[in-house]
Simulated scan of single mutants.
Amino acid sequence: MDAVRLRRLNRWQAEDLSEDLADLFVESSVAAPGEEFRGREEFLRRLADDVRLPGFDMLIAETEALAGCAYGFPVPRDGSWWQGFDGPLPQNIEQLTASGHLFAIAETLVHPHGQTRGLARHLQEHLLADHESSLGVTLVDPSHGAARAAFEAWGWQEVGQVRRSLPGPTVLRALVLRLGQRTAEHPDGLAHNARTQRSE
């Protein structure tokens, strides 16, 4: 990790680097033969949509070349990001959403041949810490078993599923990354203080 440099990109810089990021997406994904081009195009479409969201933020990791990236945006306080959640939303997540302490990680890419163990988790945690987030959230296509396994290996936990309209899969797995220390008082790792309590 000592040889890795982290650099923040704004939306215009991310757009300028989009072709390199799409190449990294292809290199880091396990696509069926012949599916690489379609996956690359879908990634570019998602990136073009995401960079326009309020609060978009991206971190890239560089060695001699582009080694990884993570990007996302703050979850809106109005709860719209959770629309389609199957069942009641856990109260602590609802409180953190309303207080603006959630950050959605939209994409995490790491070059598969890099000598940077833990880079994906490092990028995610750095991005979340920069936004003073109490919780990271992401949505994963359940058919992408390798992606889900990777997120779970990085410490993410499933909290339910979200139904989204097309394009894309209609049901996605909602995962969270808790950043706080787990204690007897807060076994979920989420500290509830005056800043994260919803007013009655």
Rank of each mutant, 00 (worst) to 15 (best):
L135S: 06
A22D: 01
F73E: 00
L6K: 08
D23P: 10
A48C: 10
D78Y: 03
A150T: 04
S143L: 14
P187D: 01
R173P: 05
L172V: 05
S133A: 15
I93G: 01
E152D: 13
T196G: 11
M1H: 12
E200M: 13
E158S: 15
M1W: 06
Q124L: 08
E152S: 14
G168M: 09
P167Q: 07
A120V: 02
D188Q: 12
T138L: 12
A32T: 13
Q95L: 13
L9A: 13
A61N: 00
G68Q: 00
G55R: 06
W81V: 04
L9G: 06
G136I: 00
L128R: 00
E152Y: 08
S134I: 02
L179N: 07
G34W: 08
T196R: 07
Q95I: 06
P142E: 01
H111G: 09
P112K: 08
P33K: 09
R178H: 15
A98P: 01
I93L: 13
G136Q: 00
P167A: 09
M58E: 06
I105S: 00
A149F: 03
R148T: 09
E107V: 02
L135H: 05
D2P: 11
S28Q: 05
A129V: 07
Q83P: 11
L24Q: 00
I105A: 00
V51E: 03
A31P: 13
L9S: 09
